[in-house]
Design a protein around this nucleic acid. Structure first.
Length: 577
RNA sequence: GCGCUCGUAGCUCAGGGGAUAGAGCGACCGCCUCCUAAGCGGUAGGCCGACGGUUCAAUUCCGCCCGGGCGCACCA
């Protein structure tokens, strides 16, 4: 039973408005004292030609607005405030959750639809930095959110694995490469020779031509060059795999730029045959004035292709292969124009699927007083960030275990540190709207009392601890549908139930706007409400058996929701901390 | 110059036509003989960047301006 839509039904009967119209007009009052649902009467004042407060008064006395779960209906200014029976509300929502368990929030609204999520997409032979982590974390979370709503998700890692830099790498490796180093620390070695190439190039300009020739040979499939390129790619990928493993991320395929390169000529042919390709300053472009965008370059003046052409090829390939419902690109906001151009070109060429392509942008990653021994330039490598976070988390947990004198093994402390340390980094990426720049600050992200992963994980561990204790005491949690659940009618208990009730909706909103933070926010609100309840009420030490079992049921419900929420964000929880 | 985006509490961020604008951090004051005090409560703190417009109602929508960020053809 959905209380809001039941309220809408009653109001619809009383007012003559459609149920949908009422449903969308219903508000949640700003103060608890004002009831649980409110209907603003302003929109009726014109047709009824009465003042809103008058309408509210009349409506609140309407016999149509009665039900056994409605406590009272009260007019307040231009609003009709509806007070529902909190115990019954709690029982209904907890019954729903307890019967579904980890499936709570799942729907099949996406059944039969395929969503492609392109994310992560690092460059081969380059370090994986904190910007890559942003797309990786977002894309991973979005994938899980879509899956929860029944969509089939294809996770694509569009690797930067092609282009003239590979000619340079081949040249450089033949001159200065170290086989052993390449195998041990591939990216470090590749970066080393890449940097050396650029230094040497200044003194020996002939290297540039050699690199170009190598890339040309690679493009035409020459055996030696292809073998080297392939080795660079595979070894880099092996190193990325370690990072993905740490983040708990996986992909369905790694079709990068190289994969699409031989599909570009078809794009050029298609655009040519449709008469969209125009000569401009030596390059071939598609004009996009009607889309209020600058021309999109398809072929450079030297006749070679450019990233826009590759992205167009990839959309067409994906459409042919998956007939996607949505094709999502989790790529930094600065590339907004590029995607607008790519999608516009496809739209202009008559491809309807262009409208189902969406660029999900995100902001910059910044640091507040963090000292990193940055290896190259001012990029921060993700591994360094994770290691540092884990180390600092370890110190905090270790210190706390000592002061609290808990018996906890060194091994377990290490395990908790890894999960909380990595979770803290992930949470920083998903705690606010993705378009915002984010700032890493140890003080903030590792504050165990703030809006952080640690707080969330701690709350989860706390619910687990209570559930374990209850099992020891032989107290059985209330099951779905049990009447004792309606004992959960206090302010604190109702607040938790209400927030849990909104959780599935938060997942849908997150999907709709491609904003994982909506799940993060709802989850953290539930955790906070639970801690308030925990602080004010004793769960296991009461005298009323029914109440104990009901409260334990609430505890179990919160445990389940936090576990679902953190899982959707890609954060791991621990049994105790 | 054009385009996109943002401007809300000291800081980091939610909200998004409607009833007294919220949360976390920080500051101040409190709460453990009791299930994890890594918790909780309270207080202080806002002309929601400025000005106009639409509306019964604007922090929210529209316009203009100011300020920050980003992007504007052969890199990705």
């Amino acid at each position: 039973m959905d209380f809001k839509s039941e309220v809408a039904l009653l109001l619809s009967n009383a007012t003559g408005l459609t149920r949908d119209a009422v449903y969308s007009a219903i508000e949640i009052p700003p103060q608890r004292e004002l009831g649980d649902y409110a209907f603003p009467c302003f929109l009726l004042s014109k047709t009824l030609r009465k003042a809103p407060p008058v309408i509210a008064k009349e409506l609140s006395a309407d016999p149509a607005l009665t039900a056994e779960w409605i406590e009272k209906v009260q007019a307040a200014g231009g609003y009709v405030n509806i007070y529902i029976d909190h115990g019954q509300f709690s029982k209904v929502i907890l019954t729903d959750l307890l019967s579904k368990g980890r499936d709570f929030g799942k729907t099949d609204e996406g059944a039969g639809k395929t969503v492609i999520v392109e994310y992560s997409s690092p460059n081969i032979a380059k370090p994986f930095h904190v910007g890559h982590a942003f797309t990786t974390v977002l894309g991973h979370s979005l994938s899980r959110i879509y899956e929860t709503l029944g969509y089939k998700v294809v996770r694509m890692n569009h690797l930067g694995d092609y282009g003239t830099q590979f000619g340079k790498l081949i040249t450089a490796f033949r001159l200065w490469g170290d086989e052993t180093a390449l195998r041990e620390t591939p990216i470090k070695e590749l970066l080393r020779i890449y940097v050396k190439f650029h230094e040497e190039e200044k003194i020996h300009p002939e290297l540039t031509q050699d690199a170009r020739d190598n890339f040309k040979r690679l493009e035409s499939g020459a055996e030696e060059e292809t073998a080297l390129w392939s080795a660079f790619r595979e070894l880099s990928l092996k190193e990325f795999a370690i990072i993905y493993d740490r983040l708990g991320v996986q992909f369905d395929n790694y079709n990068g730029e190289s994969f699409y390169s031989d599909r570009i000529p078809a794009v050029v042919d298609m655009l040519t045959s449709k008469g969209l390709l125009i000569d401009s300053e030596g390059a071939k472009v598609v004009m996009l004035d009607e889309y209020k965008a600058p021309p999109c370059i398809i072929l450079k003046s030297d006749g070679t292709t450019i990233y826009a052409s590759r992205d167009i090829a990839s959309v067409l390939y994906r459409w042919d292969t998956y007939h996607f419902y949505k094709n999502i690109y989790v790529v930094g906001s600065p590339q907004a124009l590029h995607f607008k151009q790519v999608f516009s070109v496809l739209d202009k060429a008559g491809y309807e699927c262009a409208r189902d392509c969406v660029h999900v942008g995100f902001g910059l990653v910044k640091f507040a007083d963090m000292k990193f021994s940055t290896r190259e330039g001012n990029i921060v490598v993700l591994d360094d960030l994770l290691n540092e976070s884990i180390a600092k988390t370890y110190e905090i947990i270790k210190a706390n275990a000592l002061t609290r004198n808990t018996e906890i093994s060194e091994e377990e402390i290490r395990d908790i540190s890894v999960k909380v340390g990595i979770g803290s980094v992930i949470y920083t990426y998903v705690k606010s709207g993705r378009e915002r720049d984010i700032i890493f600050s140890w003080e903030e992200m590792l504050d165990f009392e703030g809006d952080t992963a640690a707080y969330l994980i701690y709350t989860y561990a706390r619910t687990r601890s209570i559930l374990r204790k209850a099992a020891d005491l032989g107290i059985v949690s209330a099951a779905a549908g049990e009447d004792c659940l309606s004992l959960l009618s206090s302010e604190d208990e109702y607040e938790v139930a209400r927030l849990i009730c909104d959780f599935p909706d938060a997942i849908k909103k997150a999907q709709n706007s491609n904003e994982p933070f909506m799940v993060a926010r709802q989850t953290s609100q539930i955790a906070r409400a639970f801690n308030r309840f925990y602080n004010n009420s004793s769960i296991l030490s009461g005298t009323d058996e029914h109440q104990k079992r009901a409260r334990l049921g609430l505890c179990e419900a919160v445990c389940t929701v936090i576990s679902i929420g953190t899982n959707l964000l890609g954060i791991s929880v621990v049994e105790r901390m």
